[in-house]
Design a protein around this nucleic acid. Structure first.
Length: 1176
RNA sequence: GGUCCAGUGGCGGAACUGGUAUACGCACAGCACUUAAAAUGCUGCACCGAAAGGUAUGUGGGUUCGAUUCCCACCUGGACCACCA
């Protein structure tokens, strides 16, 4: 040492260590059972032609820091990288230039790879994936087929959002303010056959799952809002229609269609507490039309309106709000709680596809209803009072008395000059006129009395207003008690200025004065009156928040949540309605009419579509008991074109397996690959035995409340006691006979066998013994006795009805994207693939006849919905495996769930929800080991260009990381990006800021070259720094972690300063600093580490630990001394000073004595190690 | 319109469960080293005041010995959603 030290040369050092890491495979990870695993994940980038911009490295560096720290803490860390390469920009580039997207993608990925390696991220490159690699999308296609086979992918002709510029169908989520998210063009509506994924079936699971994961609040909230669960009630309104216009069909509670002479309309509401305020019933034009179809004879006018409204709706191109229109239907409904007749209106603001297509109109408490009622002169009835807390008051205090009053207030206007009458009160407050309502007095009478007494005006009119009244909630009004006031609030118009004298006592209390409209708001001082004024000004009569129920019979006085609950139980008790849960979430449009996406691996076969399907229904123990829904199912399936067989089995109260099978076998023999078996209870057991001896494949098997013989401890004697007359012994023998699952699996394939059982007698654990992939709990609560779910079962069965869509067999996957001449979508909006006749024409895998391929491709969300699973199973190094060997549940079990997933806020709704959906589905069919894919989710803020704008090529404000690395080095760039500001907030880029960080790294370099082998210089500071930096990294406060290290480095250098030329810093101090800094500036730290004589990479060195003993060692501290809360002095003391001594020392201070002015302190408070607070 | 988040020096920002507001960095000014510059180091840097001291965390209130932190209302900016009953 001492001689000229080498200069810190980032370029040389960084190259050197990147090469070292690659050569030594430092960051390639194996499934090591001896170490604790840690899976950290970043959102894989889209490899655009522009390359990385300076915003990309923010999340990457953050997770790199965390991954590197975890490695040093001894964890076995999987930190993978890949590319999400399907998507529009590349396709648009291909359309423009004619260059094949596959080639362009390859080039872009190479460039991204170079840049990412340049930044020194500790990725396991051996596991990289590329969503456009056929080996990868083979599995994207396979998963899609799983959805298809489980009835969760379906084709639907529906109006979709259509971007005329991109010629692409958009998911609802991709439409921003009626415009295309990508290009900003106004979105049109078009009808198109689209593949859909039934994510709505998972709404509840996706919502419940959020309880078991650690997501940042914002992400969790956004997911919840997107799913949009609303709890409310379904309420039935009777509708009285003239006899000749009867509507016959209604739904019963259970959902079975039944016939009835009665007509009802069901309505969903989130505010069942306001039913008393329902003054009209509004139905959608769609619902009205369906009434017409079943024979409602409406007037010509009404018919005309319905037609017009429906036309206007389909013509609407954007989601802009439309003017509310409507027409009275000429019929009345009965408000089911108040029993009053209310009119029925047809209107465009009620949507046919939302809820039940009808709503109850509560104008006093719903803005939309209010607008409508105002426009058409419908009555408004207030049933909720606002509950407000007076400004300046905190929440009501415990242990204080309560004063409850009824108060009335009037806003008195003189229409002649538009001025308002106020009172200036003795306490200097200014208010409107009003006062307390006396016991038994009417509010209007009280107001009249007050106005005359207080102001002398006698000729006025109190309007019968619909202003919301208040339930005021304040305190410290004159008395030290909680005051709860019911405030009634009216508008008053002066008829004339007739006036009588006001008594002297009244004048002394408050003096009336007139104020022009413009000055009222600054003159009125009472908070409640300011509220009133605002509402009066805005003409806002509608109060849609929670409050207190009034004029609502048995709900009066209840707060909204309690009122809702009480109303729901009342409705249920009177069989008028029930609790109902609605979701905002909609099914996922999964088709794109584009080239650059995964082809959908289905073919359409006309022949298969027209083939008649058979269904064999097998009843259970005691045929006429729980299985009594089978006849209904038979009728429904026959309606849908099935050939249905329901054999009666011999002696069903004394079941004998052999006899049953003998009867069933001939029926079973008729079934083929497209046919269906439905077994209920013991019938499902019989079905399994038929299947295990079968030599052929059966299409779909549904086993409901399945008696599957997997029970360990069943108390059969109990059944013997309960079921007198039944042969429980026979049942037991039948039940417990084991099933050869492998044989069953051969004849159905686990994907098409749907087991449902929530039988209370079957233990959850027994399900674990089922072969993987059996969909065993489709409907929660679907046991023997929940027959109301039978219609759901019907829908499920109908999903296996031939649609003509036939999945490709696994051997034909991946279905590769063919090369095409042109990348433009066709004019009809179909994908360029549709133009390739050779590719489109194919053979049906089912019947071998002629068939056509699906030409839609998948959306770019598809590939990213399971990439984290691909990494865990080895990524590209294992994706080449043939057949289904790649999918390795053991590897998934080892790595899943992802321990920490960081990504952008822009993906917290869609990508996060979609990938959770895929994972939960794969969990249900047994392909992944955990229901939730990500244990923890955090989010980074954007990096903005200077001036706060988003970085974009078009604005020309993109900062290129290549230049920054050239100028300052990768370590400085990484450290600066982490130092810029709070990780979860947006920050502006400022290249000047890099200078400071570079100086810091220079400083560390200098310290690393001035090592002395002597005792530790600042032990306490070192341990404090270690503790702080560790904690800051864990909580993602990277900026403060770095500032802690800067403070420490400054301290070490100052220490050096005493002996500038040849002073040294102790090895231990510097090594600690280098270890702490290494996750941020890995190249620099590796270099110093090796110069310090270490032979191994710093990447696996032990992360330093703070020594608690050192931290707690006695030392000098400053105690702050406050007098009445103000800092007056500080005193030095030892850190172990006792409370008493501290107080004594504080009082001994001269300055403090001066402030005390000889007074005796009332109270002295000591906060350990921090301060002494003296109250005089 | 709804939901959520934020507001602290010239700037980016710090203050972990209420406890000495302005850490760390940038910019700026002065000094040292140097023929000079760069680099580096040192000093200063919220506002008012000569000082004692006073005032400041968007505004106004509340709770508290003590509030950037908790509560209420308002203002400003941002993010996401939007006729979802």
């Amino acid at each position: 040492m001492g001689s000229a030290m080498k200069k810190y040369d980032p370029k040389k050092i960084e190259k050197k260590w990147q090469t070292y890491w690659a050569k030594n495979k430092t960051f390639e990870v194996k499934e090591d059972k001896k170490k604790e695993k840690f899976y950290s994940l970043i959102e894989f980038p889209y490899p655009s032609g522009e390359g990385l911009h300076v915003g990309h490295p923010r999340p990457f560096t953050a997770m790199d820091v965390i991954s590197r720290k975890k490695r040093m803490e001894g964890k076995n860390v999987l930190f993978p990288i890949g590319f999400d390469a399907f998507g529009l920009p590349t396709e648009n580039f291909a359309i423009k230039t004619g260059k094949p997207p596959a080639e362009v993608t390859k080039k872009n990925i190479a460039n991204f790879t170079r840049q990412l390696k340049m930044l020194g991220f500790s990725f396991d490159w051996s596991r990289a994936v590329d969503t456009t690699d056929p080996n990868y999308y083979k599995w994207t296609q396979e998963i899609f087929l799983q959805f298809f086979k489980h009835g969760l992918a379906y084709k639907k002709n529906q109006p979709i959002n259509w971007c005329p510029k991109d010629k692409i169908g958009l998911a609802n989520e991709e439409v921003v303010n009626g415009n295309c998210e990508r290009c900003g063009t106004a979105v049109e509506k078009r009808n198109k056959e689209q593949w859909m994924l039934a994510i709505t079936k998972y709404a509840d699971k996706l919502l419940q799952g959020l309880k078991n994961v650690d997501y940042i609040e914002r992400a969790r909230l956004q997911q919840e809002n997107w799913i949009g669960k609303s709890e409310g009630a379904l309420v039935r309104f009777s509708v009285v229609i003239p006899a000749k216009a009867g509507i016959q069909t209604i739904q019963s509670d259970a959902g079975f269609p039944i016939k009835s002479g009665m007509t009802t309309v069901e309505v969903f509401t989130t505010r069942p507490d306001t039913i008393f305020g329902a003054t009209f019933l509004a139905i959608s034009p769609e619902l009205a039309k369906s009434w017409l179809e079943v024979g409602w004879q409406a007037s010509e006018e009404v018919k005309k309106y319905i037609t017009q409204a429906l036309e206007a709706r389909s013509a609407a191109t954007t989601r802009e709000e439309q003017e509310k229109t409507g027409i009275s239907a000429g019929i009345v409904a009965i408000n089911p709680v108040s029993k009053k007749e209310i009119p029925v209106w047809i209107t465009n603001y009620v949507m046919g596809e939302v809820g039940t297509g009808a709503i109850m109109g509560v104008p006093a408490h719903d803005e939309r209803d209010f607008d409508f009622a105002k426009k058409f002169g419908l009555p408004v009835k207030q049933v909720v009072m606002q509950n407000i807390v007076v400004a300046g008051a905190a929440a009501p205090r415990d242990n204080k008395g309560l004063i409850q009053r009824k108060v009335v207030t009037g806003i008195i206007r003189n229409p002649k000059n538009d001025s308002f009458l106020l009172l200036r009160r003795a306490d200097k407050e200014s208010s409107f006129v009003g006062g307390t309502i006396e016991d038994g007095e009417d509010a209007i009478a009280a107001l009249r009395r007050e106005i005359v007494e207080e102001t002398g005006y006698t000729d006025f009119e109190i309007k019968n207003t619909v202003f919301p009244n208040f339930f005021g909630n304040g305190y410290k009004l004159r008395v030290d008690k909680n005051c709860l006031d019911f405030e009634y609030f009216y508008a008053v118009e002066l008829n004339s200025e007739l006036h009588q004298e006001v008594s002297k006592e009244e004048m002394a209390k408050h003096e009336p004065f007139w104020v022009p409209r413009a000055d009222v708001s600054k003159t009125v001082t009472l908070t409640t009156h300011q509220y009133m004024w605002n509402l009066y000004q805005e003409n806002k009569y509608c109060f849609s928040e929670d409050g207190i129920a009034v004029s609502s019979d048995f709900l009066n006085g209840l707060k909204t949540p309690e009122a809702k609950e009480k109303m729901i139980s009342w409705l249920e008790e009177h069989k008028i309605g029930k609790k109902q849960i609605n979701y905002k979430l909609r099914d996922w449009v999964f088709s794109r009419q584009r080239y650059w996406g995964e082809p959908i691996p289905l073919v359409y076969c006309e022949h298969c579509k027209n083939k008649k399907q058979k269904a064999l229904l097998i009843h259970g123990f005691e045929a006429t008991g729980d299985s009594n829904w089978l006849p209904w199912m038979k009728i429904e399936l026959e309606k849908q074109g099935f050939e249905v067989m329901v054999p009666a089995l011999p002696d069903s109260s004394h079941p004998d397996l052999g006899k049953w099978l003998a009867v069933l076998q001939p029926y079973f023999d008729k079934l083929g690959e497209n046919d269906v078996i439905v077994g209920h209870s013991l019938g499902s057991k019989a079905a399994l035995h038929l299947l295990e001896t079968s030599k052929k494949k059966i299409g779909h098997v549904y086993l409901v409340a399945s008696a599957i013989g997997l029970l360990e401890e069943r108390d059969w004697s109990k059944f013997e006691r309960e079921w007198k007359g039944s042969d429980v012994k026979a049942l037991q023998k039948f039940w417990e006979k084991p099933v050869k699952w492998e044989a069953v699996e051969k004849s159905v394939g686990n994907k098409n066998l749907i087991l449902s059982s929530d039988d209370p007698y079957i233990k959850k654990e027994t399900h674990k013994n089922l072969p993987p992939g059996w969909f065993y709990q489709l409907w929660s609560g679907f046991g023997h006795f929940q027959q109301k779910q039978i219609p759901e079962l019907l829908n499920l069965i109908l999903q296996s009805k031939n649609t003509g869509w036939v999945p490709l067999p696994e051997s034909e996957l991946p279905l590769k994207l063919p090369k095409v001449e042109k990348y433009q979508p066709t004019d009809t909006g179909e994908s360029p693939l549709a133009a390739m006749e050779k590719w489109v024409k194919t053979k049906c895998p089912n019947c071998g006849g002629p068939a056509k391929r699906e030409t839609d491709t998948m959306p770019n969300w598809a590939g990213s919905s399971w990439y984290f699973l691909a990494y865990a199973m080895g990524g590209k190094k294992r994706l080449k495996e043939k057949g289904d060997k790649f999918w390795d549940k053991e590897m998934l079990k080892h790595w899943q769930p992802v321990d920490w997933y960081n990504g952008g806020m822009e993906h917290t709704v869609l990508h996060l929800l979609y990938s959770r959906f895929w994972n939960q589905f794969l969990y249900d069919i047994g392909m992944v080991p955990t229901p939730e894919p990500y244990a923890k989710r955090t989010s980074h803020g954007m990096i903005l260009a200077k001036g706060g704008e988003k970085m974009s090529k078009s604005r020309g404000n993109v900062v290129n990381p290549d230049e920054m690395v050239e100028q300052f080095g990768a370590d400085a760039l990484r450290t600066y990006i982490m130092f810029m500001g709070p990780f979860d907030q947006a920050v502006e880029w400022d290249t000047n800021g890099l200078v400071g960080v570079k100086r810091f790294l220079d400083k560390v370099w200098r310290l690393g070259n001035r090592i002395g082998e002597h005792k530790l210089d600042h032990p306490w500071a070192m341990h404090k720094t270690i503790a702080a930096v560790s904690a800051r990294i864990d909580s993602m406060s990277f900026n403060t972690a770095i500032s802690e290290m800067m403070v420490y480095a400054n301290l070490l250098e100052n220490h050096l300063g005493e002996n500038k030329e040849n002073g040294t810093v102790s090895r231990e101090a510097v090594e600690a600093l280098v270890l702490l800094l290494s996750p941020f500036a890995p190249h620099l730290c590796e270099q110093i580490w090796s110069q310090l004589g270490h032979e191994k990479s710093i990447a696996f060195e032990k992360w330093p630990e703070a020594n608690q003993e050192e931290l707690e060692k006695k030392q000098n501290i400053n105690l702050a001394v406050q007098v009445n809360g103000k800092l007056r002095d500080t005193v030095t003391a030892w850190s172990d000073i006792s409370e008493e001594e501290a107080k004594k020392a504080a009082l001994a201070s001269e300055k403090i004595q001066k402030w005390l002015e000889g007074k005796e302190p009332k109270k002295v408070i000591y906060v350990k190690g921090k301060l002494v607070s003296i109250v005089v």
